[in-house]
Amino acid sequence: EDEVKKIVKRLIENGVDDEQIKEIVKRQGVDERIVDKVLKELK
């Protein structure tokens, strides 16, 4: 989960929008619920 957080944070800093972040992270095989949780925490 910490790995996911790092990735998502980097994507947000690069101006990637939420939908794209979800797609990218899902392609890495991460559960969507984890992605949603991380996005909420970082906003």
Rank of each mutant, 00 (worst) to 15 (best):
K37I: 07
K40D: 15
Q20K: 13
D18S: 11
V16I: 14
K9M: 09
K5C: 06
E1H: 12
Q28W: 08
E19P: 07
N14Q: 15
V25L: 15
K26T: 14
I34F: 07
Q28K: 11
E23L: 06
K22D: 01
E41L: 02
I7Q: 09
N14A: 15
I21G: 00
R33G: 11
E23F: 01
E3V: 12
V8H: 00
R33N: 14
E23C: 05
D36H: 04
V8D: 00
D31A: 11
R10H: 13
D31Q: 08
K5H: 08
L39N: 01
N14K: 15
L39D: 01
D36Q: 05
R27S: 14
E41F: 02
L39C: 02
K37A: 09
V35C: 03
R27C: 06
L39R: 03
K43Q: 14
I12T: 05
E32F: 04
R27I: 08
K37T: 07
D36V: 08
I7G: 02
K40E: 15
V30C: 05
V16A: 10
Q28S: 13
R27H: 11
E3F: 12
I34S: 05
G29H: 05
K37G: 05
V38M: 10
K5P: 02
I7W: 05
V16C: 05
E19L: 11
V38K: 02
E19W: 10
D17I: 09
K6I: 12
V25N: 02
R10Y: 07
R33F: 12
V38H: 03
E3W: 15
D36M: 03
E1C: 06
D17S: 15
D36S: 07
I34G: 02
L11Y: 05
Q28D: 09
I7P: 00
G29E: 03
L42I: 15
K6A: 15
E41K: 03
Q20Y: 09
E3N: 10
D2L: 10
K22F: 10
K6V: 12
K9A: 11
D31S: 11
L39H: 02
K22W: 05
I24S: 04
E13G: 08
N14H: 12
V35L: 13
V8F: 00
K5M: 07
G15M: 07
L39G: 00
L11W: 02
E3M: 14
D36E: 15
E1W: 14
V4Y: 03
K22N: 03
D2H: 09
K5W: 03
G29K: 04
K43N: 11
D2E: 14
K37D: 06
N14C: 06
I24H: 06
I34K: 05
E32H: 08
I12N: 02
D17W: 06
I34R: 05
V35E: 00
I21H: 00
V8P: 00
D18T: 12
E13M: 10
R33I: 11
V38A: 08
D2R: 08
K37F: 04
D2W: 08
E13S: 09
V8W: 00
N14L: 15
V38W: 08
E3H: 12
Q20W: 08
E19S: 10
I34H: 05
E1L: 12
R33L: 13
K9C: 05
D31I: 06
Q20N: 10
D36P: 00
E19N: 12
N14W: 14
V4M: 06
K37E: 08
R27A: 15
I34L: 14
I12E: 02
V4I: 13
D17Y: 07
K5R: 13
Q20I: 11
I21R: 00
K40T: 14
G15R: 06
I34T: 12
Q20M: 14
K26V: 15
V30Q: 05
D2K: 08
K6L: 10
D17K: 13
I21M: 03
I24Q: 07
E13Q: 11
Q28Y: 10
K5N: 05
K9H: 09
V35A: 07
E32T: 09
L39K: 03
E13H: 09
K6C: 06
E41N: 05
K26P: 02
R27T: 09
V8Y: 00
I24C: 04
I12V: 09
D18A: 13
E3P: 07
I24F: 03
L39T: 03
I21P: 00
V4P: 01
R33D: 11
E1M: 14
K22R: 14
E1D: 09
E19D: 13
L42G: 05
L42V: 14
L11K: 00
I24V: 08
R10V: 12
V4N: 01
V4S: 01
L11G: 01
K22E: 03
K5T: 08
L42Q: 06
K9F: 02
I21Y: 00
E3Y: 12
D31P: 13
N14M: 15
E23H: 09
V35I: 15
V16F: 15
E13V: 07
V16P: 01
K9E: 09
Q28C: 07
I21S: 01
L39Q: 01
D18K: 09
K37R: 12
R10Q: 14
I21L: 06
V8K: 00
I7A: 08
K22M: 13
K22T: 06
K5S: 06
E3G: 09
Q28I: 14
E3S: 11
I21D: 00
E23Y: 01
E1V: 13
E13P: 01
E32G: 12
K40C: 05
K22S: 04
K22L: 12
V4R: 01
L11F: 05
K40V: 10
E32Q: 11
K26I: 15
E32D: 11
V16T: 09
K6N: 12
K9P: 00
L11N: 01
E3D: 10
D18Q: 10
E1F: 14
K43S: 13
G15Y: 05
E1T: 11
V4D: 01
D36G: 03
K5L: 07
V35S: 02
K6R: 15
Q28V: 11
L11M: 10
E19Q: 12
G15Q: 06
E41C: 04
R10T: 12
I21W: 01
E23N: 11
I24G: 02
D17M: 11
K40S: 14
D18P: 13
L42E: 05
I34M: 14
R33P: 05
E1R: 07
K22C: 03
R27Y: 04
Q20L: 13
R33A: 15
D31T: 07
V30G: 08
Q20E: 13
V4F: 05
K5F: 04
I7K: 07
V25Y: 02
E23A: 14
K22P: 02
V35K: 00
G29I: 03
L42A: 10
E3L: 12
Q28R: 11
K9L: 08
R33T: 13
K40F: 04
G15T: 02
K26Y: 04
I24W: 02
E19C: 05
E1Y: 14
E13L: 09
I21V: 07
N14P: 01
K37P: 01
L42K: 03
I24R: 06
K40H: 15
I7D: 03
V4K: 01
G29M: 04
D2C: 03
V16S: 08
L11H: 04
V30I: 14
K43G: 15
L39A: 01
K22A: 06
G15S: 05
D31L: 09
E3Q: 10
V38Q: 02
L39W: 01
V35T: 07
V30R: 05
D36K: 07
L39S: 01
D2M: 10
D31C: 04
K9Q: 13
V30H: 13
V8A: 04
V4W: 08
K40N: 14
V30E: 02
K26D: 02
V16G: 03
R10N: 11
I12C: 03
D17T: 15
R27P: 03
G29C: 04
Q28A: 13
V16E: 07
D2F: 08
R27G: 12
V38L: 13
R27V: 08
E41V: 02
E19Y: 10
L39Y: 02
V30N: 04
K6F: 03
V30P: 02
L39E: 02
E19F: 09
R33Y: 13
I7S: 05
K43W: 07
E32S: 12
E41Q: 07
I21E: 00
K9R: 14
V38F: 06
E32V: 13
I24D: 03
I12F: 11
K26F: 03
G29D: 04
D2I: 10
N14S: 14
E1I: 15
K26H: 08
D18Y: 13
K40R: 10
R33V: 11
R10E: 14
E1Q: 09
E23P: 01
K43P: 08
E19R: 09
I21F: 01
I34C: 03
N14E: 14
R10K: 15
L11P: 00
I12L: 15
D17V: 09
D18F: 15
E32N: 06
K40Q: 14
K40Y: 04
Q28G: 10
L39V: 04
E19I: 11
E41H: 03
V35D: 00
